[in-house]
Design a protein around this nucleic acid. Structure first.
Length: 273
DNA sequence: ATTTCATCCTGGAGGC
DNA sequence: TGCCTCCAGGATGAAA
């Protein structure tokens, strides 16, 4: 479900609530699928009693740093972090606050695809799952030179944009929307983009992500902010999920194709091959 | 070395 | 109402 704008929206909502708070309890209700490199006991031992020293994000990963140890969480398709219990609660993080009342954050994840790693905080860049992540689109590292290097591939540009080891944070929605904004056909081999197309795509990616952030992300299905409120970016979709509907720019019907088992939506007139 | 494919799992929507 | 099929914001590891 969540791509970079949704994960960053969650991060921004949680940070002021949680930074400096002490973790009182951690309950793992689903260990088999969720815990990738540790046991519930190890999680408890390393994290309980510690204060949250940082809440970060890399690509679609949320990084809860508790002093020397970090809990790295990926929500995958259906994961949500909520302040209230939900139908498919897989993990509960109980924080102590000043008044000692305590507040709990619930990981709700119907499809059980979410994943959690326990990593030493000083090893985050060297260990799974963050070590192979590619370029971050909303950071100073995202430069024209770095982006052009990334496009040096025969692969279809849409599939390249989804490869997290090349570019971190884009998912199906924002890859489709950025390609539309740039006027680039999703099937075009990355290397075959003209310099103008490459430049437009380079600029469209952060622009689309920032617009989505401003809207609080996309909630056409399950995604919610931790307080349960929804994002509004689905109201701004130009192509995603709009097969057959008129292109907002030229009126031609939006097409849907399949690439790597995933749907791509594009305007055949505005995004010529 | 790439690239495709199936798979993990559950729920919702739509067809009949 | 019930049953069936398809689809889903993601990623991985095996197979081709």
């Amino acid at each position: 479900m969540p791509e970079l704008p949704e994960v960053e929206t969650i991060r921004r909502a949680l940070e002021p609530q949680l930074l400096g708070r002490r973790l009182a309890h951690i309950d793992v209700l689903e260990r088999v699928h969720l815990l990738k490199n540790c046991t519930p006991e190890a999680l408890q031992e390393r994290l309980v009693g510690r204060r949250l020293t940082a809440l970060g994000r890399r690509g679609k990963f949320l990084i809860f740093e508790f002093g020397p140890w970090a809990m790295v969480l990926h929500l995958r398709m259906s994961g949500r972090l909520l302040w209230t219990p939900a139908r498919h609660t897989r993990l509960v993080l109980q924080f102590r606050d000043e008044e000692e009342q305590g507040r709990a954050l619930y990981l709700d994840d119907a499809r059980r695809f979410a994943s959690l790693y326990l990593v030493r905080a000083d090893q985050l860049d060297e260990q799974k799952p963050l070590k192979d992540l590619g370029l971050e689109p909303l950071t100073p590292a995202y430069t024209w030179a770095a982006f052009r290097r990334l496009l040096d591939s025969e692969r279809e540009v849409k599939r390249l944009l989804l490869d997290q080891t090349r570019l971190a944070g884009l998912g199906n929605i924002y890859a489709c929307e950025a390609l539309f904004e740039a006027g680039v056909h999703p099937r075009k081999p990355a290397r075959a983009l003209s310099p103008e197309e490459a430049r437009r795509l380079f600029e469209a990616i952060p622009r689309v992500l920032r617009r989505a952030l401003r809207a609080g992300g996309t909630s056409f299905d399950r995604y919610r902010r931790p307080d349960g409120s929804i994002g509004r970016f689905q109201e701004e979709f130009r192509v995603y999920g709009r097969a057959g509907a008129p292109c907002p720019r030229c009126g031609a019907p939006i097409e849907r194709i399949t690439q790597g088992g995933r749907s791509s939506f594009f305007c055949p007139r505005c995004q010529p091959f």
